[in-house]
Every structure is written in structure tokens, then in C-alpha cells.
Design a protein around this nucleic acid. Structure first.
Lengths: 197, 197
DNA sequence: TGACGCATGTAACTCGTTACATGATTCT
DNA sequence: AGAATCATGTAACGAGTTACATGCGTCA
């Protein structure tokens, strides 16, 4: 059900077509809840069926059309209720840590390659998170900008600071993952010898 | 497929019955890859069908029997191959951070309750990780002890240090999560007023 | 006119969750 | 005798992944 609320969160900023949702999603909400297009379109349809969204068909070009979704009152209510309900705890399921615990089974070269790949992924991810955080701080983030339009200027700081808080948590995680992978590389060198194999 | 390798990892320490697997699993491998019983038993059957495990029926009491699973050569090979192959990257999917980004929608009391619940879960989890880490350091962890028996004493340090490395990564994550939740509670007090509601 | 972006999905499958189901054994 | 623990699952459903399918619009 979390996907549903992630989509509602995005659509509370402004009405959007499915395509816009899928594009904007990947640049904002996906940082905390990833989902591919093939999950987004069907879910939008189900949300409309359940009365959380309503859609209007907008002409596009000469023959084309597109569907624009807007959150209904019921949708806002459902989102608020979810926000006020206790979070589900997600149990750990992280292949990198699983593998790390059994690194004595890996070839030294494979162990290094994995830790490097992990570090590089998180380094890239961190750069993206920091860039996004900067667009929140200066309020140039497009979704944030449309969101703030519904609110009194007195509320802007409050809204922005929660988003920055969320990104700060993600950034902490990314930094911790990178530091851990680097310690792992030192450990592999120490235990397996630092020769290339 | 990661569940399959998590089970192989556990069973490389010693042969076990399904029940033992499900119990030992929750005290070791589940810290990096959680799975309920209802997923474990069927997967063990599939792994036997696929030749990664072989089972022998052991009498239990007067009429009862139980099935003991041991990793086959093919199982060891499959595990090594997985260990040497690149890790799959898991994209972010964390309801706590999703909610944090939209805390302006929550009642102040609910926001506090969520952050407290999150902090408390991770605090408890951290205590368990630290306790488990200590049993690795002093080598009293039961699964580790049976695992070390297959190896030459000269290898013990290497094996143990990889496991400690994995737990250190989990402990870092837990500490980061707790610190983040605490900063969140301060933020909620600042933005929503610190009166009880 | 061809490439790229806009637009919207379906189909098949695997993985994971939740709830339920059943019986034997051992300990107190 | 009853509780706890050992033992092993199934059934139904929901969530997530991967690959594929199709056509219009716009701009160079």
C-alpha cells in the first residue's frame, strides 16, 4: 500500500498525467520509494477506481489524448489517515550485508569488486541526493515549487524543512554505506593480501 | 533468489532440520535477510528438488520423524558462484523516510509518535546487533562455532572478522537511524510547538 | 523521414506476507 | 494433564520485476 501513498504524496503538489507522475516520481518520491512505470500506471487506475483520484481526459495534439489525475477529497483524507497511522517496520533485506558476512567464500578479486561496486553506487546516489537537497534549500525543486503554491508563505519554511530532514536521513545512510564499504576494502586487503589476482 | 543463498549460507555451518534452520536463521542470517517460516520450508524443499540440498529422514521420539538437510557439492558450488557474482542493487523503499518527507500533513502528536516508534525499534534492534556482535567477538555464537569446526584454526580470525564487519555496518545504520529520529523529534517540537496535544 | 520524447499500458512471473492448519514430544 | 516447544507446512493474496507492446507528436 505504500506505493499508493507515495503517489498521493506526489499528486498533492498538483494534478498530473500518468506520464508526468512517472517522470516526476523518479526525481522526487522515488528517492524514498522506488517504483517502475509498470507499477505506477495500473496503481493510478486502481486509485481512481477506489475514488482517491479523479481523471479528466485532455486532448493532446490532433488525435492524441492524455489523462490528468487529481486527488479527490477522499484521496486527501486517505493520505492524512495514512500519515497519522503507525509506520510499518520493514525488516532488513540487504544482499550487500548478507554477502559481507560470508566474504570468506568469495574470491578476493570478487570481494573487492563487490565492495567497490557498492561504494560507487552509493557515491553516485549520494551526489544525486545532495543535488536534490540543494534544490529544496533554494526552493527550485519543481514539485516543491508547485506544492508551496497551495500554502500561505508562513508555512513554506515548515514544509521545506521536513523534506530537507528526510533527505538528510538518506544522506546519512549513504555516507555510512560508503564509509563501511571503504573499511571493507581495507579489510579485504589485510586479510587476503593486497596483490591483484 | 537471495533467500536461497541466505539459507545456503546458514546450512554451510552444519546440517540442520527445517525447524533448526528456521530457529537459527532468526538469530543470525535474518539480521541481514529476514524471512518467515512459511517462506523457509517451501524454499528448502525447492532447494532439495534443485539438488542444492539433500535430506535424510531422522526418527524423532516414538513415531515422529524429521528431515535433516545438508548442502550438496552442487549447493556449495552455487553458493560460491553467487558470492563471486555482482550484487543486485536494492532501490530505496522505506516508509519512514517517505512519511518524514511529508510530515506537514501529519498531526503533531502522530508525527512525534512515529519518530519515537522508529527510534525505539532501532534502539532495540541496535541492542540485539551489539549483543550478537559480542558473541562473534568471543566466538560463543552457536552457528559460528559449528562453522569454525570445518576450518583450520589459522582461518578463524579471517572468517570471524568478515562477520564482525557485516555487523559493524548494520550497527552504523542503526545508530544513524536513531540519531536521525532524534533530530526529527527536535524538529517537530520546533515547528509544531512542544505542547502535548 | 527518422530519432527522440510523450503517452499508456499488459502479461507472465517471482517474491513476500498473513493467516491458518495439524500433530508429536517433552517438560513440569 | 496441560503448556511449551518441536516439527512441517498450505492457501490466498498482494507487491514487485522484467520484458514486451503500441502509437502519436515534435523537431532537426
Amino acid at each position: 500500500m505504500a506505493l499508493r501513498y507515495a503517489l498521493l504524496a506526489l499528486l498533492t503538489s498538483r494534478p498530473m498525467t500518468g506520464y508526468d507522475v512517472s517522470k516526476q516520481f523518479s526525481q522526487s518520491v522515488a528517492h524514498v520509494w522506488h517504483a517502475p512505470d509498470s507499477q505506477i500506471y495500473p496503481e493510478l487506475n486502481r486509485m481512481e477506481r477506489d475514488g482517491l483520484l479523479e481523471s479528466s481526459v485532455v486532448p493532446w495534439g490532433k488525435k492524441g489524448t492524455k489523462k490528468e489525475y487529481a486527488v479527490t477529497e477522499a484521496g486527501v483524507k486517505a493520505f492524512r489517515e495514512w500519515m497519522d497511522s503507525p509506520i510499518e517496520i520493514r525488516r532488513q533485506r540487504e544482499p550487500a550485508y548478507l554477502k559481507a558476512a560470508y566474504l570468506e567464500w568469495a574470491e578476493p578479486g570478487a570481494a573487492r569488486a563487490e565492495l567497490e561496486q557498492f561504494r560507487d553506487y552509493w557515491t553516485e546516489h549520494l551526489a544525486m541526493l545532495e543535488a536534490t537537497r540543494a534544490t529544496l534549500v533554494d526552493r527550485s525543486h519543481p514539485t516543491l515549487a508547485s506544492r508551496l503554491e497551495h500554502y500561505d508563505a508562513a508555512q513554506w519554511d515548515r514544509i521545506v524543512r521536513y523534506k530537507i530532514f528526510a533527505y538528510d536521513g538518506l544522506i546519512d545512510q549513504a555516507r555510512a554505506a560508503i564509509a563501511w564499504a571503504e573499511r571493507g576494502l581495507v579489510l579485504v586487503d589485510e586479510l587476503e593480501g593486497s596483490t591483484v589476482d
